[in-house]
Design a protein around this nucleic acid. Structure first.
Lengths: 122, 122
DNA sequence: ATCTATGTTAGAATTATTCCAATTAAATTT
DNA sequence: AAATTTAATTGGAATAATTCTAACATAGAT
């Protein structure tokens, strides 16, 4: 793993914010000088392919990146914030239902986060 | 609902292929003459917002559109084909786990489809 | 028949991401 | 340690999907 790949990996793992490529790029630039967005994308792709991190594909927004420890996501319909949640692994249930082997699954729930709930007086 | 919105809605509902905006556009053009991609996108957005159809956000590929009858998706890692699968509604389970109301959920499973399995000799 | 509101068109603009060629850095051989 | 090979990074152009905007057309209301 190259130096930049490792820096990017650490940013993602030590963050709870599910950063975008752009955010990672800005942080890397401010902390370690000269980098370029293409390098960030190259390394993100490399890290994803190697299974070190995973990509969260967003609706109408740039993709976000996250550590791989198995967990799922809650996405606020109002502000787009992402929260993690941990749920029993449902691979077995899915495979039983399907009669077919599953490589992985991606579960996203749409909800309204506590902050937005407050703002909206709910 | 406007004429184009209805045509698009029907294409999606009478199809099992989860078409992209482009595919819908081409079909609409060949069957009803003059349309433009922006109109297709406008109407797809309108139909999504109204809950008439839903968008399947794809990784590294254009978005696809689908009817709303509740079901989930199996996406082949090799060829990208999408198959539907019907699973008991897990909203209750998720809400119990979360202690929070869920608006909707999106579950995608990655697998290898029967055709690719054959091709790969699996 | 005219006015108004809404939908559609055409094409430019934007955004996210990838590609490619040139450069730099790192690793390996001499 | 210098030279050679290999891999990573840069910068900028290219691409692809989608949205925006302004002009135009259509349909319904007056």
């Amino acid at each position: 793993m190259t130096k930049n790949a490792e820096l990017i990996y650490n940013i993602i793992c030590n963050s709870t914010s599910h950063p975008t490529a752009e955010e990672i790029y800005l942080r890397l630039k401010s902390e370690h000088g000269r980098v370029v967005l293409a390098t960030v994308y190259n390394n993100l792709n490399y890290l994803c392919e190697g299974g070190y991190i995973r990509k969260i594909v967003m609706e109408n927004a740039p993709d976000r990146y996250d550590k791989t420890i198995r967990h799922d996501h809650l996405i606020c319909r109002e502000c787009g914030a992402i929260a993690d949640f941990y749920m029993d692994d449902i691979t077995d249930i899915l495979e039983a239902k399907l009669g077919s082997h599953i490589l992985s699954y991606d579960l996203k729930c749409s909800y309204i986060c506590p902050e937005c709930r407050k703002k909206l007086g709910m």
